[in-house]
Design a protein around this nucleic acid. Structure first.
Length: 490
RNA sequence: GGCGCGUUGGCGGAGCAGUUACGCAGCGGUCUGCAAAACCGCGUAGAUGGGUGCAACUCCCAUACGUGCCUCCA
């Protein structure tokens, strides 16, 4: 089996080869911690978690860094957006009557809880931008020494004209952009696409987060407080922890033209080597067919979903139903479909509890057709995901395997093959099929056996009474030609 | 205003130039103590108009609608 991924550098699906055999360095752009993440934010993290899982399933040791943007960045100086001209964290702090530090700490904590709720594997390093200010300043220093920077009134900027391949990553038409721009840009900037590496604190504005600008970075005689530009932190933290060249860098599709383009420019200008060999981007999730935006109030959070009766795993099931590069659409009707599909999968997973004395565990039977095909499904699942994270194909493989299990006699299911398949699904898709399908209590099992006995005696009254008892435990029994099977009641 | 992208059955969602994707929901039948499940079957999918091809949902062009970026954004 071989891994291949769509790479923004080449704009096509390429075979994936890490720099060092058996190891992968991975950087994922993390959240700005000024608010609760919404379903669109989380969908990206679900995809990248699945990426980590499939890398690991291919026996690769993954070292992953995810940043926490816990420092405010001034957004553009222009009109058109209510958030314009104000630092999100400072704004959040004012809204909540706290300091920016407290706001960042609160939402960082919430984000980390969300990672657990969605069963996302914790990155090797979760790094806060404010813990890497020195590294960011050092990167500016390197860029200044190499002549890529200039200072204007409000900050230190990167001169994109000095990085000739700037437009390549996103296929930018810089001339057209400038000509078609609807908003004015800072006229002091040398080029429209130049971006701030370091911003000076505006005079008279009280900020919770600011640092002294080292004197060697600014013109002689100045003394200015400032804070890092947004793009800088990712480059500084990625290279500090993973080295100058990463294997893989992931993020949202919106990052291609600005954030990632700028990361590449500043990193490669500083080091002279390629910053990341593969770049993967998740498409955005819409809600009810439109963009998620504050004004529409459609950015549902995990709490919103739980209040409506959907678990984070229902949502995870929903996300992976569509390919990471296609645009998803979130509606509660769609979430219902995913929830039902997951419920059905769990009922298959529960079969392993009710078959152990009847299952074909003996070696001589482990090579029969059904068990072999289940082992093949485990293999096919990993191969589908290795092919550019093809989660829809993976789901189809699982459905196919499960419908075969449903259609054969329970005695003919090979327990080890089924358990192996479930373990594989859990390890690569993180759906916790095993964990969420615990065995039932001995009491309920006894009721089921008594009920089977009553049925043999055609004592339908007793049988129906026992079924009521069983249903009180959230279990439904159904009778097949080969005995009773229990399921979790929907 | 400039530059992109998308449009598949009730709802999601894939692949593919010619044989069932898959799921959720629905309908009919078989089976069955009841119930449920399972199994079998059903519903004239491919925005619209052209073009290329022996053949197009699949390639090309146009139109409509939707949507995104150009400003912070997963």
């Amino acid at each position: 089996m071989s891994l291949q991924f769509h790479n923004q550098l080449t704009k096509k699906v390429d075979p994936f080869t890490p720099q060092v055999a058996g190891k992968v360095s991975l950087y994922t752009c993390g959240p700005t911690v000024y608010n609760y993440p919404h379903v669109g934010n989380w969908s990206g993290y679900v995809y990248w978690d699945t990426l980590v899982r499939i890398l690991q399933a291919n026996n690769l040791e993954v070292t992953r860094v995810m940043n926490i943007t816990d420092v405010g960045h001034l957004t553009g100086e222009n009109e058109g957006d209510a958030d314009q001209g104000e630092d999100k964290l400072q704004k959040g702090a004012r809204r909540e009557g706290k300091t920016a530090w407290e706001v960042a700490a609160f939402y960082t904590d919430d984000f980390m809880k969300g990672i657990d709720r969605l069963n996302l594997i914790k990155p090797t390093h979760v790094t806060k931008a404010t813990n890497y200010i020195e590294e960011q300043l050092q990167l500016i220093r390197t860029l200044k020494e190499k002549g890529f920077t200039y200072e204007i009134d409000d900050g230190i900027y990167f001169d994109t004209a000095k990085f000739p391949t700037y437009a390549n990553f996103a296929d930018l038409d810089l001339e057209a952009q400038r000509a078609g721009a609807r908003v004015e840009y800072n006229p002091e900037k040398r080029n429209h696409s130049d971006f701030a590496l370091w911003k000076f604190s505006p005079a008279g504005e009280a900020r919770d987060m600011e640092w002294e600008t080292p004197s060697d970075l600014i013109e002689a005689g100045e003394e200015r407080l400032g804070f890092p530009g947004w793009h800088l932190e990712c480059s500084a933290m990625a290279m500090t922890l993973l080295g100058e060249t990463l294997d893989l860098h992931t993020g949202g599709i919106d990052h291609i033209p600005v954030h990632h383009t700028n990361e590449i420019a500043q990193s490669e200008a500083a080091t002279g080597v390629i910053f990341a060999n593969y770049w993967m981007h998740n498409n955005h999730l819409k809600v009810n067919g439109t963009k998620i935006s504050k004004s529409l109030d459609n950015g549902y959070t995990l709490d919103d979903l739980e209040e409506k009766g959907y678990s984070p795993l229902d949502f995870r099931m929903f996300v992976l139903q569509s390919h990471y590069r296609s645009e998803g659409n979130f509606t509660f009707e769609n979430l219902d479909g995913a929830k039902n599909r997951l419920r059905n999968w769990r009922n298959i997973a529960a079969l392993r509890h009710q078959t152990h004395d009847r299952l074909r565990d003996d070696d001589e039977k482990s090579t029969d057709d059904e068990s072999v095909s289940l082992y093949a499904s485990s293999q096919a699942l990993v191969e589908a995901l290795s092919n550019d994270l093809d989660t829809p194909a993976a789901y189809a493989i699982i459905d196919d395997a499960f419908s075969r299990i449903e259609s054969i006699n329970i005695e003919d299911i090979h327990q080890h093959a089924l358990t192996t398949l479930l373990e594989t699904i859990d390890s690569v898709l993180g759906l916790q099929l095993l964990e969420t399908t615990k065995d039932i209590s001995d009491d309920v099992k006894r009721f089921i056996i008594e009920r089977e006995r009553a049925r043999e005696n055609k004592d339908w009254h007793a049988a129906d009474h026992l079924r009521d008892q069983i249903e009180k435990s959230g279990i439904t029994v159904r009778d097949t030609a080969h005995g009773s099977i229990w399921e979790y009641t929907a």
